[in-house]
């Protein structure tokens, strides 16, 4: 019985470490730009479609860095497009870097991102809408993505943002999407309904708070220890009698 209790303790502790205090990363998200929601993208906010005629989408003037890029809008073609929506799960602004990588360079695909979940603004010959403040916009500038491209923008605290990927001309590609924070680690982001967390900073080192899952598993471990202690106490009491 004692061995069983010890085994249970090890199992509980192992589960706690595996959970990492609250869930794994959904990145990289691999898309084949075929209209199908990528398997790794577990959020339910995937959209795809096609623009026809003289419509187009804006890109930034140059490669954007935090807080965001200046928008230019000559109207870039996007006959096939898809969008991903995420949320900054920190209770503070987060500078994120959006990274797309592919094995081989296709002809021309483009990407941009913007804060919020608003609709994609489209170019028309008579008007040239751009994303402007308070919306932050990011893109690698007016370049085709090639095999590896990255750009940054700042997402306000506990706020959503949208990542746009489109085919401009020629063949579509298969890309892996990663989103990093300004230290190069995976960014603290989730689906739109994700809970926001507060980072507690001690001596300059951010300490993440325990999530609900972490608390649950921690409680389970405590319960196991308590059970073993009570069992041992009962055994000793019965031996004495």
């Amino acid at each position: 019985m004692k061995k069983l209790a010890i085994l249970f303790c090890f199992f509980s502790a192992g589960t706690l470490f595996a959970a990492g205090g609250g869930g794994g990363s959904i990145f990289p998200i691999r898309t084949s730009m075929n209209g199908q929601k990528p398997a790794a993208y577990t959020c339910d906010t995937f959209k795809s479609g096609a623009f026809t005629g003289q419509t187009g989408v804006p890109l930034t003037t140059g490669a954007s860095a935090c807080p965001g890029g200046a928008c230019t809008n000559p109207g870039y073609f996007a006959p096939y497009w898809e969008t991903y929506q995420f949320k900054n799960t920190l209770l503070q602004p987060q500078c994120i870097t959006i990274s797309w990588t592919a094995q081989t360079a296709a002809t021309c695909n483009i990407s941009f991102a913007y804060t919020g979940t608003g609709p994609i603004l489209l170019w028309t010959p008579t008007a040239a809408p751009c994303y402007g403040p308070p919306i932050n916009m990011g893109s690698p500038g007016a370049v085709c993505m090639g095999t590896n491209v990255r750009y940054s923008l700042t997402i306000p605290e506990c706020s959503p943002f949208t990542v746009f990927l489109a085919n401009n001309n020629g063949s579509r590609n298969t890309y892996d999407l990663n989103i990093f924070n300004d230290k190069g680690d995976p960014a603290a982001i989730g689906c739109l309904g994700a809970e926001c967390k507060k980072l507690i900073t001690i001596g300059g080192t951010p300490v993440p708070t325990m999530t609900q899952w972490g608390l649950f598993i921690f409680g389970l471990v405590l319960l196991t220890f308590a059970s073993v202690a009570i069992y041992n106490f009962a055994q000793r009491a019965s031996v004495k009698e």
């Binding site: 003289q54 890109l59 073609f77 021309c108 010959p125 370049v143 001309n169 020629g170």
Partner: peptide
């Protein structure tokens, strides 16, 4: 060319 994206005009 597939280096810079095609614009709706130009």
């Amino acid at each position: 060319q597939g280096l810079v994206p095609r614009k709706a005009s130009g």
